[in-house]
Design a binder for these strands. Structure first.
Lengths: 219, 219
DNA sequence: ACCTGAACACCGTTCAAGT
DNA sequence: ACCTGAACACCGTTCAAGT
């Protein structure tokens, strides 16, 4: 039996979170699955908050950002956001984790933020604008990519389809005079198939806004 | 003593949430403050989830959106987002509430969404793009406006300033070789004074992205 | 250094019962 | 219709103690 290590705990926590949602990640539950007493975890983490910080850090730590002065900042920013988005897709609980933690306490997140700041400055945004822009794009990417994930438990496709069908019916049976557009667009609203379109469109939107603001600075 | 009404419960819950954070909003705590047994709340709400739905609905219900075909869609969209943002500023717990609930279950949110959908369609976006855009702008506004709020308890200015100073020091004492930009920009990063600039810039960014995408459709 | 056991103060929720 | 009382199965966390 391998001993209880910080990493093992965090990885197990992420497994539970991805499978059943972050609210299922519990000190007691975690301890039980690891074959250990709940208090054992308190040796490795000061409290539950620090455990979630550990989860967030583990989610972002392998991003390997290499700022490269020879490539355009738009391209690099897009790459950075792309990695964030793909990670959020892979881990259903990532959005919840990143919303719950104080991101300032997550070293890996600070590194990503630092890279983004460098790119914004290179785009000739001022100090304040760069701060706002980077907050905006990172937060926006989390909200956007996370929002398109069913962060419930991993369900068999059949049950997922049933869930979609139910939501669609709910939309269609709303009073059409107060919700005309939602009733009419119940189908596209509940479609979730083309995650790829969603990703590129979302990222395009984020970056179009930033480029547009950058152009104003230059003009 | 007025009787226990759904509205009174929701309002009290929002007071607690704004003052001490959503995690302080507890069935038992709420019951105690209302001078009633915890189980009494279960007569008015099926469970805690429905209570939070009630909170979300109450936060958005008085938005009074009047779609007006004679005004440009950009203007109306900006107004809609502006209301969302101002509400999020007024209520420190609003972001947490809106993140926790299933927004599809909040009637007032569905009305806002319906209005936004109408505006997107008027901007000549297709059905799918309109769905994405409206999700994007509503979610983005929540994340952006909420992110600039200290959603801890309402603290006296003095303690708040101390908190900012502490964060700044933490940034400045990070290893400058791994976090060069964060160290250098510790001051603007922790500045929080001009909420107004933050708001307009954030909303501008959101709308610049959307207008830019709309222009591509026309071009 | 690393883990256990017992205990404390909290949760949400159910169910039967009161008025 | 509206609320209470007792109980159940959970939490996170502390503190003293074991090895």
């Amino acid at each position: 039996m391998g001993k209880l290590t910080r990493e093992a705990v965090v990885e197990r926590a992420l497994e539970i979170g991805d499978a059943e949602g972050l609210q299922a990640v519990t000190i007691r539950r975690l301890a039980q699955e690891l074959g250990v007493t709940p208090m054992a975890l308190y040796w490795h983490f000061k409290n539950k908050e620090q455990l979630v910080v550990g989860m967030a850090d583990h989610l972002i730590e392998d991003f390997e950002i290499t700022p490269d002065g020879s490539r355009p900042w738009q391209e690099q920013l897009r790459e950075l956001v792309g990695r964030l988005v793909r990670m959020l897709r892979r881990h259903p609980c990532a959005e919840a984790v990143l919303e719950e933690v104080d991101k300032m306490e997550v070293p890996a997140f600070l590194r990503v933020w630092d890279t983004a700041l460098g790119l914004a400055l290179r785009a000739r945004f001022g100090a304040r604008e760069s701060c706002l822009i980077t907050r905006y794009i990172l937060q926006g990417a989390i909200a956007l990519a996370g929002g398109s994930v069913e962060h419930r438990r991993c369900v068999p496709d059949e049950e997922r389809a049933e869930h979609v069908r139910l939501k669609r019916v709910r939309f269609q049976s709303l009073p059409p005079d107060t919700y005309p557009n939602i009733v009419r667009m119940a189908v596209p609203l509940t479609e979730r198939g083309d995650a790829e379109l969603y990703d590129t469109f979302g990222v395009d939107l984020l970056l179009a806004g930033i480029e547009s603001m950058a152009a104003r600075l230059d003009g």
